[in-house]
Design a protein around this nucleic acid. Structure first.
Lengths: 173, 173
DNA sequence: GTCTATAGGCCGATAGAC
DNA sequence: GTCTATCGGCCTATAGAC
């Protein structure tokens, strides 16, 4: 990929994630990327096309992160890794996640199936550990995971490590 | 309040909550409300002013809902009412809540303190019930509450009543 | 006089021409 | 990579209805 195309993607990710998609103009993106505005349309056709390219990358990263959990054999390991998930987000990737969570409110981009494999895996893990209502437990944990991620991404959690330890303790993971 | 002013508020709430603030133009609001665009500015000064008026109402509703929990004496009652909170949202009020959650990503409007009284109350309730880590428990439950609300508001929870029962059972509330 | 509608100004946004 | 056309955004000025 060309250097400038990459710069455009970087700038757009930052702005889309932090200012919002509609609030971000293509001229702002071009300015931040240090390229001419026309180049954006040359590479991505439209503003929507640019967003699409970014979301493609974001979904790839989601898949990568989930893959490690999905091939875990030990049920406790599955739960531990799931709990650790939001706490392990690399700060360079924050914008990808922020954008994903923001767009969840957008009908065009929200896809509940993206998390389905993880929930199935969790259900299996809870069942193996002898939990009665394994599906509900899986849903509960995935909800906690979601809320914690949002809190962390907004930079609004007081003491992340302490809360992480608390969760790991609670789930004996 | 005049009939048309009310119509504007209704239309704007719907559009802001479902399409997003920046994605909604004042002309679309006027069209949906069946009024002239100029009227919006006569009543609310600016588009921001209109949002502000709506958020004022939304905060009032939040306070109302929390008030009932905050004056509850029985610690189990506090937890039960908190769990029931998201499941009791009246469908006519969905848009208010949707808007609140969406704007949490917006630096100008996000105010973490709005939920603070509830978390304090929960902490107190857990402490009374003999939980060791009452603060963490309170934070955990508030996170569950948040994620469940979001899921419900997105209309994406499979079997709400079943999950509600599961939570009440789990917390013996 | 107060409330409402209409017509347009100005600006910035997307996109396409060169 | 620049330049610009066109469209739609927010808002105001002014005129009309009650």
């Amino acid at each position: 990929m060309s250097d400038k195309k990459h710069k455009i993607l970087d700038a757009a990710l930052d702005l889309f994630a932090n200012e919002g998609y509609t609030a971000t103009s293509t001229s702002k993106i071009a300015q931040k990327a240090g390229v001419s505005e026309g180049l954006i349309f040359r590479h991505f056709e439209s503003k929507k096309g640019l967003l699409h390219a970014i979301m493609q990358e974001a979904e790839d990263r989601l898949r990568d992160v989930l893959a490690d959990i999905l091939c875990e054999k030990d049920p406790r390991g599955v739960i531990r890794k799931t709990i650790e998930l939001p706490f392990n987000i690399r700060s360079e990737e924050y914008d990808y996640w922020r954008l994903q969570y923001k767009l969840k409110w957008d009908k065009d981009y929200y896809n509940p199936d993206k998390m389905k494999p993880l929930i199935e895996k969790l259900k299996e893990a809870f069942a193996l550990l002898g939990f009665e209502e394994s599906e509900q437990e899986a849903r509960l944990l995935s909800h906690v995971l979601e809320a914690v991620s949002i809190e962390l991404l907004r930079g609004n959690m007081k003491d992340p490590q302490q809360f992480k330890s608390f969760l790991l303790e609670k789930y004996k993971a």
